[in-house]
Design a protein around this nucleic acid. Structure first.
Lengths: 332, 332
DNA sequence: CGCTAATGTGGTCACGTAACCATAACTTAC
DNA sequence: GTAAGTTATGGTTACGTGACCACATTAGCG
C-alpha cells in the first residue's frame, strides 16, 4: 500500500505538503504542486479511507434498509436515493431486511455508517430499540402516513391517496367498486380507511373487499389475479376495482381479461404507485403516481441535514401524489 | 462517542483487558469479564469501525456493481450475494452503474471496499483501467460466456443455453422458430449463435429474428410485445418464439394473445432466466433456469477466496442451467 | 529601511484500535 | 524448594490521516 509518506519522499517534500495538495488548502508553490501530482500519479496513490474516516469521524456512507429491493417500488425509490447520495459524495449500503434476517440489524446499526434510511415501516420498532442511547444514528424513514412519533420522515398519506383514487372512480360513474388490498380491522389500515370514507361520503355502499394477508411483492401479482378470479366466479357484480398497488391491479386485469370480460369496457381497474409495470400492461394502467425518485432524494436530503446539524431541517415531508390517467378506467 | 478507554475506567481495568474481552482472546478472569461486559452494556459501547479498519487493514465491505438493480435478474442475483456476504460478516454497497454514471467509477474503486463484484460485463474495460497498479482490488465478475481473459468469474454459457432452448423447441416438433433478442452481426452475440447453430444442426432454416437493439429492462416487455406484433401483422408464419430472456418472452405472449391466437396451442414461447415473472404470466412460461441465487453466492465465495489468498480458488466457475417446463410450449 | 502581511514548508499530535511485550502472581512437577 | 509453565493484567506501539502550530522566506508599503 502506498502512503502519503512515500509520495512525499518521491516528490522530495514533507507529508504535510502532500496533504495540502490533496485537500487543496493552504499554500503550495506551483512547481511543487506539479511535482507532487506527478508523484501521486506515478505511484498510484490513493488516500487510505480508514485513516480518513478515523480522523474525520465520518464514513461518507449511508445504510439503506428495505424489505425487498426486488420490489420495483423500492428499487425505483432506491434509484432516487442513490442519485442524491452520489451527488453529495456518499455511497450506499443496501440491506434486504426480511423477518428472518432481523438478527443482522445489529450489524447494520454498528456498521460504518453516518446515517440510515429506512424504507420499511414495519421494522421501525426494532430499529428504534437499537437506536437508543449511544447507538443513536441519524435516521430518515419512508412512511405511508403522517407519523405522530418524532422521527424524521418523508411520507405519502395513503389514506388520502386511496380516497382520491376511489373518488375518481365514483366521479367516473362507478358505484360497485371492489377494494383490492390488505385489510385488517384492528390495524385500521389507512388504505382501507380511505376507500371506506370515499364510498361513505358519496353514499355508495361498500360492496366487498379482499382481506387476505399479502406476502412479498412477487406474490402480489398472483394474489390480485386469484382474488378477482374468485369474485368473478362468485358472480359478484362490480364495475371497478380499486387496488392498493399496481401489482395487485395488474393481476386483477389479467384475471378479468381471462374471464372474457374487457378492461375497461366491462370492468375498470385503478392502481397506486405508478411503477414501470403500469405502462407495460395491456391496457395501460390508470394509477396514482407516487414520486418515488423525488422521495428518495428527499430522504437523503433530510438525512444529510441531520448529519450536518442543519437547523432548518423539515421533519415531516409529504410527497405529492397525482393521478395518472391511462387506459384502464372507463369514464361514463 | 464512547471509547474502549472509558469502558476500561468504568470497569476499573486497562483498555487491553477490554480488548481481550471483546475479541475473545487471551486470558481474562471470569469476574473481570462480567464487570467489563456490564460496563459495555451500560455505556452502550460500540467499537469504532474506522479504527478497526485502519488497524486491521480491511473494511469488511464489498462493492457490487450492476447496470440496474430494478432488473429482476440482477436483484435476484443480489439476493444470493447478500445472503453469502452477510453470512461471512461482510456488508454490501450497491451501485447502479449506468453509462452516464461512469464518472462515479473512480469513487467506487477508491472506496472502502475489500473487493468488488461486477454484474455487468459491459463495464469491464473501464473497471480494468482503474484496477491497474496500486488500485488493484480483488474482483469477481458475472459473465455470460467463458472468459478468455484471466479474470475470476462465474459464468453461464449463453450460447449453450440458447442452443438447448432451441433444441427443446425442435424436439417438441417446431420448425418455424423466431429468434427474439438482441442481434449484432459483428459482435457475434453468443445467444444468436446458439440459436443459429441449433437450427442449422437440425437442418431447420433460420426464419427470422429480431435485431433491434434493446434498452433497459423496463423496455424489454414493450420490445418483445412490439416485435411480435409486427411479425404477426406481416403474416410471418411461425409456431414458436425463442426469446433470449423472460421479459421479452412475456411481451411476446401478450402480443400473441392480443392477436387472438393461443399460447401454446397456436404459438409456443420459451424464455431464458426464470425470473419470478415466468411463474406469474398466463400461461406460465417455460424457460431455462439460471441459478441466480447460487451464482450470487459463488461470486462472493470466489471474491473472498481472493481476499483471503486461498490457493484452491476456482477462477472460472460455470453455473448449471436447467430447463423448467411450464405451460407456454406445446409438445407435438 | 524596517515593519507587517502574505506565502510556503515541515514537525507534531490525536483519532481508537489490535497486536505484541513485559510483568506478576499463582500452579504444577520433580 | 526451585524451575517451568499457566493464568491474568497493564503498557506501548503503529496503522495513515488532517488539523494545527512553528518557522522560514518573500512581498508590499510608508
Amino acid at each position: 500500500m502506498v502512503t502519503r509518506r512515500e509520495v512525499a519522499e518521491q516528490a522530495g517534500v514533507s507529508p504535510s505538503t502532500v496533504s495540502r495538495v490533496i485537500n487543496n488548502n493552504g499554500y503550495v508553490a506551483e512547481d511543487v504542486r506539479k511535482r507532487i501530482e506527478a508523484a501521486i500519479a506515478e505511484l498510484n496513490y490513493i488516500p487510505n479511507r480508514a485513516a480518513q474516516n478515523l480522523r474525520m469521524k465520518s464514513y461518507k456512507q449511508i445504510a439503506c434498509l428495505t424489505p425487498s429491493i426486488s420490489n420495483p417500488f423500492y428499487s425505483e425509490m432506491f434509484a432516487g436515493i442513490e442519485e442524491m447520495a452520489l451527488e453529495k459524495g456518499y455511497s450506499l449500503s443496501l440491506y434486504n431486511i426480511t423477518k428472518e434476517r432481523r438478527n443482522y440489524l445489529r450489524q447494520v446499526v454498528e456498521g460504518p455508517y453516518d446515517g440510515m434510511i429506512l424504507l420499511a415501516p414495519y421494522e421501525l420498532s426494532s430499529i428504534m430499540d437499537f437506536n437508543k442511547g449511544a447507538l443513536k444514528m441519524p435516521l430518515s424513514v419512508y412512511w405511508d402516513r403522517p407519523e405522530k412519533a418524532d422521527i424524521p420522515h418523508v411520507f405519502v398519506d395513503m389514506e388520502k391517496v386511496m380516497r382520491q383514487s376511489v373518488e375518481y372512480l365514483i366521479e367516473s360513474g362507478h358505484k360497485e367498486i371492489i377494494y383490492l388490498g390488505h385489510y385488517d380491522e384492528n390495524q385500521a389500515n389507512p388504505r382501507y380507511k380511505g376507500y371506506k370514507d370515499a364510498m361513505k361520503a358519496q353514499g355508495v355502499p361498500i360492496k366487498e373487499y379482499y382481506k387476505k394477508s399479502i406476502g412479498t411483492y412477487e406474490d402480489k401479482l398472483t394474489v390480485g389475479y386469484d382474488a378477482i378470479k374468485v369474485l368473478l366466479g362468485n358472480g359478484q357484480p362490480f364495475t371497478a376495482v380499486a387496488a392498493t398497488n399496481d401489482s395487485l391491479a395488474a393481476g386483477a386485469i389479467r384475471a378479468i381479461i381471462e374471464s372474457g370480460k374487457k378492461v375497461p369496457d366491462d370492468i375498470s381497474v385503478i392502481g397506486v404507485d405508478n411503477i414501470e409495470l403500469a405502462k407495460i400492461v395491456t391496457p395501460t394502467l390508470t394509477t396514482m403516481n407516487i414520486p418515488k425518485i423525488e422521495i428518495g432524494r428527499l430522504l437523503v436530503k433530510q438525512l444529510l441535514d441531520q448529519i450536518h446539524n442543519e437547523r432548518k431541517m423539515e421533519r415531516n415531508i409529504e410527497g405529492e401524489v397525482t393521478l395518472i390517467e391511462r387506459e384502464s378506467v372507463k369514464k361514463n
